[in-house]
Simulated scan of single mutants.
Amino acid sequence: MTDTTPTTESDDTLPLQQDRLWRDERWTARIIKNEEDDGWAVEMTRHGDPEPALVGPWTMGRDKKNPKPLDGPAFSTLVKTAAEVIRRHEQQLHATLNRSVTVSAGERRIRVTLAIVPDEDNPSATLSAFDEADDSELARVNVPASFKLSATSASAWIDADFARPR
């Protein structure tokens, strides 16, 4: 297959369709030599990301020596798969950085959340309490990013009248 759009080496955002390289406005698929064996691999990189979102094996061509050329359906499938990998990674990161527990305090149910802001130099976190009946915020304090939220720590914070945990 040949290029469908003229490009220059410095322009890596224009659409391109070659046997071993496909690119659209958001993604680049590149067939590369698999360093692990004699086969081929494909890497999918979202534009602007430093690393590929997906690297996987690629099918050999009919000559059993060269890779099968990329085509439109394969590129579409790779885009969907790579986007799903990124989506799942983002969900996992969100779940790691945002925790929530609900505890009983007297006659009320209180939802306590911990939101961590990752930062290499100065990570931080916010501990918040919400009345489950009307979702009103009862308290909010800054805590170390290392704070461990559990039902026990949430209850202790509530019992201390929402004083900043040490």
Results as ranks from 00 to 15, higher is better:
residue 128 S to N: 07
residue 96 T to K: 08
residue 79 V to R: 06
residue 92 Q to Y: 04
residue 135 D to K: 11
residue 116 I to D: 00
residue 131 D to E: 15
residue 89 H to A: 13
residue 128 S to Q: 10
residue 129 A to P: 04
residue 155 S to L: 15
residue 146 S to W: 06
residue 135 D to P: 06
residue 94 H to Q: 15
residue 85 V to C: 10
residue 130 F to C: 06
residue 105 A to I: 14
residue 96 T to V: 09
residue 84 E to H: 14
residue 126 T to R: 10
residue 99 R to H: 13
residue 111 R to Y: 07
residue 123 P to T: 11
residue 120 E to T: 12
residue 107 E to A: 09
residue 139 A to K: 03
residue 144 P to T: 13
residue 121 D to H: 13
residue 137 E to P: 02
residue 90 E to L: 07
residue 118 P to E: 14
residue 105 A to R: 12
residue 110 I to S: 04
residue 108 R to Y: 09
residue 106 G to L: 01
residue 133 A to R: 14
residue 83 A to S: 13
residue 85 V to H: 07
residue 138 L to S: 06
residue 139 A to D: 06
residue 109 R to S: 14
residue 123 P to K: 02
residue 137 E to L: 12
residue 90 E to S: 08
residue 88 R to Q: 13
residue 135 D to C: 13
residue 118 P to R: 11
residue 98 N to H: 15
residue 84 E to N: 11
residue 120 E to Q: 15
residue 150 S to N: 06
residue 89 H to F: 05
residue 134 D to I: 06
residue 130 F to T: 07
residue 99 R to W: 00
residue 104 S to D: 15
residue 134 D to R: 08
residue 76 S to R: 14
residue 156 A to F: 15
residue 112 V to D: 02
residue 85 V to Y: 00
residue 116 I to F: 02
residue 85 V to R: 03
residue 154 A to W: 08
residue 156 A to V: 14
residue 115 A to M: 07
residue 148 K to N: 12
residue 113 T to E: 04
residue 116 I to T: 12
residue 81 T to V: 12
residue 155 S to T: 12
residue 140 R to V: 03
residue 92 Q to A: 11
residue 141 V to Y: 00
residue 137 E to I: 00
residue 82 A to C: 11
residue 153 S to I: 05
residue 140 R to Y: 01
residue 139 A to Y: 05
residue 99 R to V: 01
residue 140 R to K: 13
residue 141 V to W: 06
residue 149 L to S: 04
residue 139 A to S: 07
residue 147 F to Q: 08
residue 115 A to D: 13
residue 129 A to G: 15
residue 107 E to S: 12
residue 128 S to E: 07
residue 81 T to L: 10
residue 146 S to K: 04
residue 151 A to I: 10
residue 94 H to D: 11
residue 100 S to Q: 10
residue 113 T to C: 07
residue 127 L to I: 09
residue 129 A to R: 08
residue 127 L to V: 05
residue 138 L to K: 06
residue 109 R to T: 14
residue 97 L to G: 00
residue 155 S to Q: 15
residue 155 S to P: 01
residue 106 G to K: 10
residue 86 I to Y: 09
residue 126 T to P: 03
residue 119 D to G: 03
residue 135 D to L: 11
residue 93 L to V: 08
residue 134 D to L: 00
residue 132 E to V: 08
residue 102 T to I: 15
residue 115 A to E: 11
residue 142 N to H: 13
residue 125 A to F: 00
residue 108 R to T: 12
residue 141 V to R: 00
residue 103 V to I: 12
residue 112 V to T: 05
residue 117 V to H: 13
residue 114 L to V: 10
residue 99 R to C: 08
residue 138 L to Q: 09
residue 84 E to M: 09
residue 79 V to T: 06
residue 91 Q to W: 00
residue 123 P to C: 09
residue 139 A to H: 00
residue 91 Q to V: 10
residue 91 Q to S: 05
residue 94 H to V: 01
residue 89 H to C: 03
residue 100 S to H: 05
residue 136 S to L: 11
residue 128 S to F: 09
residue 92 Q to W: 02
